[in-house]
Design a protein around this nucleic acid. Structure first.
Length: 211
DNA sequence: ACATTAAGTGATT
DNA sequence: AATCACTTAATGT
């Protein structure tokens, strides 16, 4: 039996036969905040579909330095899985649960079958692929064209958005890790943003005032 | 009270 | 914007 969140979201999109096909192979998965769902080099066996909660997608360099690419939430799936599901490739990214999340895992072996069989599935996959691509471009633009102050503010807003809470509960050090910069820089810019009246600071938390 | 962790700051490159 | 070195503040035991 599929969870109600899934039915509510997709029964108008997927044909009944596809809904049934999904029901027969899907596995529900609940993850806790901070749990690593997928790591670099790990084989991709399932397509995760996010029902609720949010997942952050990170890239890592050879020294283990991280950079946040984007968040995925409600109703979307991981582009990495999509690009790898044809061959049996390994993950190029790390996926960490940003909040407690509820997922539906679909075996990649079904991908090709459904692609051929169901027009609604093709549409869904292509749409997801497109929106992930747009987010990736946005991530590139952010790093390439925005200064740290803008990046930091965007980061806080994005984070507030996916957690549905204007108060982001994290440390300056963790923010620095996600943005691939140093804690000192984050602290300084946050102080500046506070002076500008854009955020409010507290220990282990920062509140976005202008969403 | 003491140790640990988070955050603030000046100076330098 | 990064790094160093140091201070101050908050929190845990």
């Amino acid at each position: 039996m599929l969870p109600v969140e899934f039915n509510n979201k997709y029964e108008g999109i997927f044909e009944p036969e596809l809904m049934q096909a999904i029901a027969s192979v899907a596995v529900e998965k609940k993850v806790q905040e901070g749990e690593v769902l997928m790591d670099i080099g790990q084989p991709l066996l399932h397509i995760p579909l996010v029902l609720n909660g949010a997942i952050k997608i990170l890239r890592e360099d050879k020294d283990g330095e991280e950079l946040l690419l984007y968040f995925i939430e409600h109703g979307d799936t991981c582009a990495m899985t999509l690009s790898c599901c044809m061959g049996q490739k390994k993950s190029e990214i790390r996926a960490v649960a940003e909040t407690d999340a509820h997922l539906l895992m679909l075996p990649v072996s079904q991908m090709e079958i459904w692609m051929a069989e169901y027009q609604s599935w093709r549409r869904f996959i292509l749409d997801s692929y497109h929106s992930r691509m747009m987010e990736l471009l946005d991530a590139v633009d952010t790093v390439a064209f925005m200064n740290m102050e803008e990046r930091l503010l965007k980061y806080l807003k994005d984070k507030a958005m996916v957690t549905h809470d204007a108060t982001v509960k994290t440390t300056h050090q963790q923010v620095a890790n996600d943005l691939h910069t140093s804690r000192v820089v984050v602290s300084r810019i946050l102080k500046q943003l506070e002076k500008e009246g854009k955020i409010r600071l507290g220990r282990n938390q920062m509140t976005v005032l202008s969403l």
